[in-house]
Computed example of a mutant assay.
Amino acid sequence: MSEKPSDDQPSASQIPDDVWEQFTRDTERDIRSSAPKEPSARARMVTERLRGQQARGEVPPGWRTGPAWQEINGRAARRRKLWTALGVTVAVAVAVVALKPSLLPGDPFGTGESQAAEASPLPAETTAPTAPPAGPDPETPTLDEPFAGSPALRWADGEAGIVLPAAKAVGSVPADRVEQALKLTKKLLVGANLDPKTVRGGRPGSALAVLDPKQPKLLDELDTALRSPSREHDPVTLFSRFDPDEVRPVGDVIKTRGRMTFEKGTHGGVAVRADYTFVYPLVRADGPTEVTRTIVRRVVEVELADPARYQVTQGRLLLLEYDQEIGNSSCFVYDGYLHPEFSSRTPTGADPSGPATDPYDRSKDIDDGDDGDCGTVTRT
């Protein structure tokens, strides 16, 4: 292993002596550190517990979707429970440049650049992606790194992920009014999904303030859902809310990715469609530091109508339609909160019955599916 290569090996003969010596020292150290070790008692206990869970058919985090608010009566919001199966393979390379490419002067293979690109933020989403995101290596999220192992690691933080498109006139609607509609839509999204008060289970006052009180029954139904949640009036179909007695957020960052489009509306104004995914890292409120994530994708359609032609409130939005898919939340629980599940705790809610879904896949529209669908996810 430590013998210097002969001159008839062109790939190694060009390596300087000091670089070769550094390589041999590092290689010998790596071999010693990678030697098999007896698993700890804790590791054996965890392994046995996971095997027991698998044998009992226990599954973790779920995925839910639901219809637009006006379609909820008589229909169950579709919720799918999700489970992530991750595997890691390890290969041993014997070639010098494969095992220690950084030893070659100048980084000829660009490994430093690729690693920097992998960790750099993604550009804003302007069109629908054509495929699911390629996830990073499987990693367990921690208090210090709550997005480890998640494609959301490269997403923008909070409001920074809601990038407004350039406003331009739509028919007779001037550009400044289009810009107003876009800003109001962003305010609605922030108030419903990013406002700390909302996320911690409080009343989403800033989101409700954007909606038109003259829209028939809308605010009354939302108030009913917040005050007395039920299957027919479930506030999590529009608001991301967690029970503070059950879980608490990890840090202040909620990862956000999506896009906004606009067109001529049906009420003399401009209609805006927002499609965004939010990723929430959470821990249990009773002490354990195990981190889990809930993924919420929302599609909201609103319109800033023409107050000269319709009985609407100036500067308020009509909520035309909204839908959602929620990954890692107990199925069929209608208490007004999302309920993330933890691998260390026995799952609650209904057993999975639907297909597996990637909660980070934004290349597909939200699936209508069947009522009562409760499936699995491929990752959280």
Rank of each mutant, 00 (worst) to 15 (best):
residue 2 S to P: 06
residue 4 K to E: 13
residue 5 P to S: 15
residue 5 P to C: 14
residue 7 D to C: 06
residue 7 D to N: 08
residue 9 Q to M: 15
residue 9 Q to T: 08
residue 11 S to D: 10
residue 12 A to T: 15
residue 13 S to K: 12
residue 16 P to I: 12
residue 21 E to V: 12
residue 22 Q to S: 14
residue 22 Q to D: 06
residue 25 R to D: 05
residue 28 E to G: 06
residue 31 I to T: 02
residue 31 I to E: 09
residue 32 R to L: 13
residue 41 A to S: 12
residue 41 A to C: 01
residue 42 R to Y: 07
residue 50 L to K: 07
residue 51 R to T: 11
residue 55 A to D: 09
residue 56 R to G: 00
residue 56 R to D: 14
residue 62 G to V: 03
residue 67 P to V: 14
residue 68 A to S: 15
residue 69 W to K: 11
residue 69 W to V: 11
residue 72 I to H: 07
residue 74 G to P: 12
residue 74 G to V: 06
residue 76 A to G: 05
residue 84 T to C: 00
residue 85 A to V: 12
residue 87 G to Q: 10
residue 88 V to F: 02
residue 89 T to W: 02
residue 90 V to F: 09
residue 91 A to C: 02
residue 94 V to L: 02
residue 94 V to Q: 04
residue 94 V to K: 03
residue 94 V to W: 04
residue 98 A to C: 10
residue 98 A to M: 13
residue 101 P to M: 07
residue 102 S to D: 11
residue 106 G to I: 04
residue 107 D to E: 01
residue 109 F to N: 07
residue 110 G to L: 09
residue 111 T to C: 08
residue 113 E to A: 13
residue 114 S to N: 05
residue 120 S to V: 05
residue 121 P to Y: 05
residue 121 P to E: 13
residue 122 L to N: 11
residue 123 P to N: 03
residue 125 E to Q: 13
residue 127 T to S: 07
residue 128 A to Y: 08
residue 129 P to T: 04
residue 130 T to E: 15
residue 132 P to F: 00
residue 135 G to P: 01
residue 136 P to Y: 07
residue 137 D to C: 00
residue 139 E to W: 03
residue 142 T to G: 08
residue 146 P to C: 10
residue 156 A to I: 07
residue 158 G to R: 06
residue 159 E to K: 15
residue 170 V to T: 03
residue 173 V to L: 03
residue 175 A to W: 02
residue 180 Q to D: 11
residue 181 A to L: 07
residue 187 K to S: 15
residue 200 R to W: 11
residue 201 G to S: 05
residue 207 A to E: 10
residue 209 A to W: 00
residue 209 A to Y: 00
residue 210 V to P: 00
residue 211 L to N: 09
residue 211 L to W: 00
residue 213 P to F: 11
residue 217 K to S: 05
residue 222 L to E: 08
residue 222 L to T: 01
residue 223 D to R: 10
residue 226 L to G: 04
residue 228 S to D: 10
residue 228 S to C: 06
residue 232 E to P: 04
residue 233 H to S: 03
residue 239 F to Y: 00
residue 241 R to C: 07
residue 248 R to W: 11
residue 249 P to K: 14
residue 251 G to Y: 12
residue 252 D to K: 14
residue 258 G to P: 01
residue 260 M to I: 10
residue 262 F to I: 00
residue 265 G to Q: 09
residue 265 G to W: 15
residue 267 H to P: 01
residue 268 G to F: 09
residue 269 G to Q: 06
residue 270 V to T: 01
residue 272 V to W: 01
residue 275 D to Y: 09
residue 277 T to Y: 07
residue 278 F to K: 04
residue 282 L to C: 11
residue 290 E to D: 15
residue 293 R to N: 08
residue 299 V to E: 02
residue 300 V to E: 04
residue 308 A to H: 12
residue 309 R to A: 10
residue 310 Y to N: 02
residue 312 V to L: 14
residue 317 L to I: 11
residue 317 L to T: 10
residue 321 E to L: 05
residue 323 D to E: 13
residue 327 G to H: 01
residue 334 Y to A: 04
residue 335 D to I: 02
residue 342 F to Y: 15
residue 342 F to K: 07
residue 343 S to M: 02
residue 345 R to I: 13
residue 346 T to S: 13
residue 348 T to Y: 05
residue 350 A to D: 13
residue 352 P to E: 00
residue 353 S to F: 06
residue 354 G to C: 04
residue 354 G to V: 01
residue 355 P to G: 06
residue 365 D to R: 01
residue 371 D to N: 14
residue 372 G to H: 15
residue 378 T to R: 13
residue 378 T to A: 13
residue 380 T to A: 06
residue 380 T to E: 11
